[in-house]
């Protein structure tokens, strides 16, 4: 799955390399800057992957956690051991979080790597108009990946809960991905603006604040708080569901 994610920056880099210059203001943000600076491949790839690609992979991984074991009939044996259900849930969630961290970092690093191969690397122009050196730019790139990792932790918790609801992993995966898309649609409707701050996808695209000079940390903190809330709520729900469930398979 990480390979599929790594394909995104490669595709973007090759496409830009083969095409003529992209006029500014067309396509996804930062796309026009790639040909001048390879490091932007990583940023553009993350931007493209945030709305659907990343949630899709997280949904698959998190949706599979408990339901996958149940459908294989192995959940019974896992719980036959001395480890409690809470501990099983914790380990399963840790696995999903590990993937949520690995996924954006894979895109960022593969993107920066392929960008460095195909395009020149130099000082990076931030949104504020200031320029920073390549070393600091890689630091910012990793910060953005960290921001996205935090953003996906909440979705992973939702997926974990979905996974405890059913014995069919595909159902849990689909429900998680659909939820991720629905919240983004709701986030785009101005009529629902009272709801927006509560949607886990609300701050997904605010990672651009890390490309300002000085960095705006507010969105990072607010996003972390929001995701922590989702982890707490859906973690508790998942525990309650798994602990009270009759394990038949």
């Amino acid at each position: 799955m990480l390979l599929a994610l790594a394909a995104v920056p490669v595709l973007i880099a090759v496409a830009v390399r083969l095409s003529s210059a992209v006029p500014p203001g067309r396509g996804p943000a930062f796309l026009d800057q790639i040909s001048q600076n390879g490091l932007f491949v990583g940023i553009t790839a993350m931007l493209v992957a945030v709305p659907l690609f990343l949630p899709l992979t997280i949904g698959v991984v998190a949706g599979d956690t408990v339901a996958g074991e149940a459908s294989l009939g192995t959940l019974r044996y896992l719980l036959a051991g001395p480890a409690g259900r809470g501990r099983l849930l914790l380990v399963k969630y840790a696995g999903a979080v590990l993937f949520a961290v690995a996924a954006p970092f894979t895109i960022a690093l593969v993107g920066a790597g392929i960008g460095a191969v195909l395009f020149p690397v130099g000082p990076v122009t931030l949104l504020s108009g200031d320029s920073i050196g390549p070393a600091e730019a890689v630091g910012r790139l990793l910060l953005i990946a960290a921001y996205l990792a935090v953003s996906l932790v909440g979705l992973a918790a939702v997926g974990l809960f979905m996974s405890t609801l059913t014995d069919v992993p595909v159902g849990a995966m689909a429900a998680t991905v659909v939820l991720a898309v629905v919240t983004q649609v709701a986030d785009a409707l101005p009529q629902l603006d009272w709801l927006h701050p509560w949607l886990f996808s609300h701050r997904w695209l605010d990672f651009a604040d890390l490309l300002r000079q000085p960095v705006v940390w507010d969105s990072f903190a607010a996003n972390a708080l929001l995701q922590a809330g989702y982890v707490a709520v859906f973690g508790a729900l998942a525990y309650a569901r798994l602990a009270t469930k009759d394990i038949l398979s």
Binding site: A29, G129, D209, R212, V216
Partner: peptide, 10 residues
């Protein structure tokens, strides 16, 4: 600095 989404005016 006017903070727009993915853009900024200074």
């Amino acid at each position: 600095q006017v903070l727009d989404r993915f853009a900024e005016r200074n």
